[in-house]
């Protein structure tokens, strides 16, 4: 499954490393990344496209825990309905 995530983060030099590390460690592959620096608000807008078989909610939750991440939105999931992303019950 492929997922698109938009997030806003405080502009710190290591933010992108933090985000990409979490994506990798939590079992997702990075397909594409786009980053824009908003100097007036000192924030970064980051758009990620990732793929993986694990529940995307796990990745969302881990990214939201990053101290520098202020907003996160899961925009799109392709390959299967999001509702069908089953947890291990």
């Amino acid at each position: 499954m492929t997922h698109t995530i938009n997030l806003t983060a405080q502009s710190r030099p290591e933010v992108m490393e933090r985000v990409l590390r979490v994506v990798r460690h939590r079992g997702f592959a990075l397909n594409s990344v786009e980053m824009n620096n908003c100097t007036t608000s000192n924030t970064l807008s980051i758009k990620l496209t990732v793929s993986g078989e694990r529940p995307i909610s796990n990745l969302e939750n881990q990214l939201k825990k990053l101290y520098d991440v202020s907003q996160l939105e899961l925009c799109q999931t392709q390959g299967m309905n999001e509702s069908a992303v089953a947890m291990n019950a």
Partner: peptide, 11 residues
């Protein structure tokens, strides 16, 4: 207290 633990392994 940690939302990331909810339904991480067991729904």
């Amino acid at each position: 207290i940690d939302p990331a633990e909810i339904s991480k392994l067991r729904k």
